[in-house]
């Protein structure tokens, strides 16, 4: 088995919009429901490790503890057009399974999904 991060990205301004960047209230609710179902399926199949949505990047804080005293800075690590808005961690046999799940995740959450392997090796 191998672990992957599946992440969804979007502009931070989406958080201030009426439907968080979705076209309508109905679309948003339908997407939440589809995502919930997808998560249940992941759990049933034993692939689920963790999943959640993230709050806006402007609520983030960066800490640099490499010096004598930690330096605390308001805001995300780097300025970007789009930030990670939510993610799953899955544990699956290989990339083909991960890509299939990512396609389902993308259709459910209405966004592109990045699939990135974790550096830890497979657990056989």
């Amino acid at each position: 088995m191998a672990k992957y991060l599946m992440s969804v990205w979007g502009p931070d301004s989406d958080y201030e919009k009426e439907h968080y960047g979705y076209a309508s209230q109905e679309e948003m609710m339908a997407s939440f429901e589809a995502t919930g179902k997808f998560n249940e399926k992941l759990q049933q199949e034993g692939y689920f490790v963790f999943a959640d949505g993230l709050d806006a990047a402007k609520t983030a804080t960066v800490v640099d503890g490499q010096g004598d005293k930690p330096i605390i800075t308001d805001g995300p690590y780097a300025e970007a057009k789009e930030y990670m808005a939510g993610f799953w961690i899955i544990d699956v046999p290989d990339l083909d399974v991960a890509l299939k799940l990512a396609a389902e995740a993308s259709a459910a959450c209405l966004g592109k999904v990045e699939v990135r392997p974790m550096q830890t090796g497979p657990e056989a």
Partner: peptide, 14 residues
């Protein structure tokens, strides 16, 4: 290697 792309003939559906 890193992304665990399998050495496999894909399933019939794919």
């Amino acid at each position: 290697k890193a992304a665990h792309i399998p050495y496999r003939v894909p399933e019939a559906a794919d």
